[in-house]
């Protein structure tokens, strides 16, 4: 079974929604490099979908996830709501970091009743899933995954498992991470290291959220893009060098994609790097598969030919800092 992708919603440094991401790819328009090297996201658009009074306790982290989820519904033509028993999987690398790391001695004095209940509630690791479930009325299985840079492929794999075992017929699955001092410091130290060694400047740190609506292919039309496969592996060597977010074109049924990639591109200058940025890669892959001009621009054939492979597939690969690697392979359509 293939899992069809009915819709996608994205929120990042480039803006909100599929069209904004496509425009950024087309124009190669990296957002202005800010003083703090981070591509942060705006979520004002959320007010269009949800009355502000129901969002009054929702923090920036959950707002990004909520907006990306709602945009995915819109993209899928499901503005009226998701099917009964829809499942939800939220992947995060850092969790509600701004909260969790900010819950510091000033907030937690050695006296009872010294912590804001709202701040505490928002620091719980499944807070984003809770808000999405409540506001989008998702009453199926809900799962929050925290496995750093492997969170997104694990979330996709679990979504496919749920569809295959009949736990649910539709899954809203995606990733979210928010900018924090920890990410900022990590970015700075990495930048200094690279500059010192004359290496290329890494993409700035980012934040954002990408969500997708997946359903069983036998329940949807053949015109939808689909998740062909999800691969993951543990580091074979602890010192294996990281592979940055990479989109690779391949037209092979072989799963050993590293050897069969004919072209590859790193688009993180558009949305920055963060633990769950592979979700952005998947959204970018969908944009490339939708528009042949973007595909041939970003992933030109190594032999200089201009023909698009008949059945193009894009692998979204990342080998993280811990050595573990994951790849989500997206196909154009089931025709």
């Amino acid at each position: 079974m293939k899992a069809c992708i009915l819709g996608a919603g994205v929120v990042g440094g480039f803006g909100c929604g599929r069209a904004a991401l496509e425009a950024a790819i087309r124009n190669r328009s990296a957002p202005e490099a800010p003083a703090v090297p981070a591509l942060t996201a705006q979520t004002d658009l959320l007010d269009r979908f949800v009355p502000p009074r129901t969002l009054r306790r929702v923090d920036h982290y959950a707002r990004m996830a909520l907006l990306a989820s709602r945009l995915a519904l819109e993209d899928a033509g499901m503005d009226d709501g998701l099917p009964e028993n829809t499942g939800l999987i939220v992947a995060t690398g850092m969790g509600p970091t701004a909260n969790t790391l900010d819950l510091q001695p000033a907030d937690v004095a050695a006296a009872d009743l010294a912590l804001s209940p709202i701040l505490f509630s928002n620091s719980v690791q499944n807070a984003a899933a809770a808000y999405i479930s409540m506001l989008l009325k998702i009453r199926g299985p809900c799962l929050s995954i925290n496995q750093y840079e492997m969170s997104v492929p694990l979330a996709f794999q679990t979504a496919i498992d749920w569809l295959e075992e009949g736990r649910t017929s539709t899954v809203l699955v995606g990733g979210v991470d928010c900018f924090s001092k920890a990410l900022h410091d990590a970015s700075l130290s990495r930048r200094e290291t690279k500059n010192g060694s004359g290496g290329r400047t890494p993409a700035p740190v980012g934040e954002g959220s990408a969500f997708f609506i997946l359903t069983r292919s036998d329940a949807a039309g053949a015109q939808y893009p689909f998740v062909h496969d999800v691969h993951m592996g543990a580091a074979m060597r602890p010192d294996a060098p990281p592979v940055p977010n990479t989109l690779m074109l391949h037209n092979s049924r072989k799963t050993d994609l590293l050897d069969h990639a004919s072209a590859h591109v790193d688009l993180t200058h558009l949305y920055g790097t963060f633990p769950t940025s592979m979700g952005m890669d998947v959204a970018a892959a969908l944009a490339l598969l939708r528009t042949e001009q973007l595909l041939s621009m970003c992933l030109p054939r190594s032999d200089g030919g201009s023909a698009i492979p008949e059945n193009p597939r894009i692998g979204c690969l990342k080998q993280g800092e811990t050595g573990d690697w994951g790849m989500i392979v997206i196909g154009r359509d089931g025709r």
Binding site: R57, L115, P117
Partner: peptide, 22 residues
């Protein structure tokens, strides 16, 4: 005003913070 049980406990926290009442 749309207040609920979380607002209630948050108010308890804020009253302690602002006025020292428990």
């Amino acid at each position: 005003f749309g207040l609920d049980s979380i607002d209630a406990v948050e108010l308890v926290f804020q009253l302690k913070k602002h006025f020292g009442v428990v």
